[in-house]
Computed example of a mutant assay.
Amino acid sequence: MNNQKITALFLDIGGVLLTDGWNRVARKKAADYFKLDHGVMEDRHHITVETFELGKITLEEYLRRVVFVEHQDFGIQDFKEFMFAQSTGHFEMLSLIAALKKEQHLKIVIVSNESRELNEFRIKNFGLNNLADCFISSSFVRLRKPDTDIFKLALDISQVPAKQIIYIDDQLMFVRLAENFGMNTIHHTDYQSTTTKLASFGLRTINDSHEKR
């Protein structure tokens, strides 16, 4: 176990703080709702997603390549609103990280793969700008996990030694990549197990400490 004091949390958004913004489940729901050919839509998405999440095309450009190649009986704005509505908060996790930041004086750094418009919506709608000190988002920095340069950039910008960081992600591959930089890691699967793992690093909230007595 790392003996150094933890001073920062590096966090993914989708699957940790919020639901995934635009994953295969959301795309299937959209295909069903708008009566689209899901297979065709998926093929177009996978061709386009890297460019989209790197911020090289706008949301409207993405939709014109994936959904509106043919004429549709609904508008782009209708589809955007459906996309945005798929995001919900993991409020226990949001409250936990906010409490740890305040009580433990932690630096919070978001390291995520998200398209610009969806990311900006989620930051504003769920108050992530009040939680995080900075956003190393793929569409902002033009780097995308699993490109390890995004972790290097996060370390450079945060100016926190790797051994003083816990990186939390629901994707095991990205957890392993962060470990290669010497970061402590938590593979997030649910709120309770992550709370327990954080406590093993000495990160407990005041309420949690009282409950343990």
Rank of each mutant, 00 (worst) to 15 (best):
I150A: 00
R144C: 09
T194F: 05
V25N: 13
H90D: 07
F34E: 10
F126Q: 12
T148V: 06
E60H: 11
L11F: 02
G21Q: 01
I110P: 03
I150M: 01
N23V: 01
I57M: 14
P146A: 09
I47T: 11
H105R: 06
N129E: 04
E81G: 11
D208S: 15
K56R: 15
H188P: 04
D190V: 00
F79E: 07
G21E: 00
V175A: 03
H38R: 13
T196L: 14
I165F: 05
S139Q: 08
D170M: 05
S200G: 09
F34K: 10
K212T: 04
D78I: 06
D170Q: 06
E50P: 01
L143G: 03
P161T: 00
F140D: 12
V67H: 12
N125L: 02
K102I: 00
N113D: 13
P146R: 09
E61P: 02
F91H: 14
F151V: 00
V49K: 14
F34R: 10
N129W: 03
K101F: 00
I168M: 08
D208F: 10
Q164D: 08
T51Q: 15
Q171V: 02
K101S: 03
L155N: 05
N207F: 11
Y62K: 09
S139F: 01
F74Q: 11
S209M: 15
K56C: 09
V67W: 08
I76Y: 09
G127H: 08
E50F: 05
V66M: 13
H46N: 10
L54M: 08
H71F: 08
E120I: 01
D32K: 11
N119A: 15
F126S: 11
E211R: 13
K56S: 08
N125C: 06
R44E: 05
G39P: 05
G14I: 02
V109C: 10
A178R: 11
N23R: 06
N125P: 10
V25Y: 15
R122M: 03
H45G: 05
V25A: 14
E211G: 07
T189V: 07
N119H: 15
K152A: 00
G55A: 07
S200V: 04
V67G: 14
F140V: 02
H71T: 11
L9M: 06
H38G: 12
T205G: 13
H45E: 07
Q164H: 11
Q72W: 02
R116Q: 15
T19K: 11
F151Y: 07
I97P: 01
H210R: 14
L118M: 15
Q77V: 12
S139M: 03
K107V: 00
G127D: 07
L11N: 03
M83I: 15
L54C: 07
T51D: 14
G127L: 05
Q171K: 07
E53T: 03
